[in-house]
């Protein structure tokens, strides 16, 4: 199982490195969204709950782009068949894809979050950086699990590009809610507030529950 995941993951990263299909698009989309928010809100700097909301909405929509592309290479170039012919645990594909999406999101955030601080954020990002990183990681895990599940659900449909956001956005509302609530005190003007532990716990529980659900149902998306 572990070696299969490693094989899939290294294939995934090599492919992304060659094609540069998902991550650059997600980064550019994030930055473009900040610009749109700047004009849409008519603000030069945002703080507190507004900053948290802008950041999470942007990251969420950027993630949807990645989710849309997640299984396209498998679907179009026979990757599913190639994988299904091998004597390996099929859950490995779920794990590898979720890890891929998780890594993509982390890479995107390495650029997009500092860009947010530079372009829109009022208080300095450094005032609560470790806490913010923790929230980002937990939210990424949730987006990665649900995103993989939704991408797997939508890949066989004719209208994939429409189905993915329509399913993913409602499912990710609790993630957005919890992550935004967590980040609000971290992005306050005049010193960061404490991290709301209950919301952090909700985020973690939600991640865990959907990881279990995804584990239970993912095999059925591969069978024929």
């Amino acid at each position: 199982m572990r070696s299969t995941v490693a094989a899939l993951l290294s294939k995934e990263l090599t492919l992304e490195w060659r094609t540069r299909e998902s991550v650059p698009a997600m980064v550019l989309f994030s930055i473009a969204t900040y610009v749109v928010f700047h004009f849409g809100l008519d603000r030069d700097r945002v703080t507190g709950d507004l900053a948290s909301g802008v950041l999470w909405v942007t990251l969420l929509f950027a993630a949807i782009l990645g989710v849309n592309r997640l299984f396209v290479a498998e679907y179009e170039q026979g990757g599913f068949d190639g994988f299904l012919l091998a004597p390996v645990d099929r859950t490995a594909l779920l794990v590898a894809k979720a890890l891929t999406l998780f890594l993509f999101l982390c890479i995107v955030e390495v650029v997009a979050v500092p860009a947010f601080a530079l372009l829109l954020l009022g208080p300095p990002l450094t005032q609560a950086l470790p806490e913010l990183v923790l929230v980002l990681l937990l939210a990424n895990a949730g987006i990665a699990v649900l995103g993989t599940l939704v991408a797997g659900l939508a890949i066989q449909t004719r209208a994939r590009d429409l189905i993915v956001p329509l399913i993913a956005l409602p499912l990710l509302v609790p993630v957005l809610l919890a992550a935004a609530r967590c980040a609000t005190p971290l992005l306050q003007d005049g010193g960061a507030g404490a991290l709301p532990a209950d919301w952090l716990a909700i985020l973690a529980i939600y991640d865990l529950l959907f990881a279990l659900i995804a584990y239970a149902v993912f095999d059925f998306l591969l069978e024929d």
Partner: peptide, 25 residues
Amino acid sequence: FLGHEALLYRELSGRENLRFHARLH
């Protein structure tokens, strides 16, 4: 299994593709 489709990733080289399948198998 040798079907109509090669089951190879277009952006990877032949060796990379085969190494990937070798690891799976």
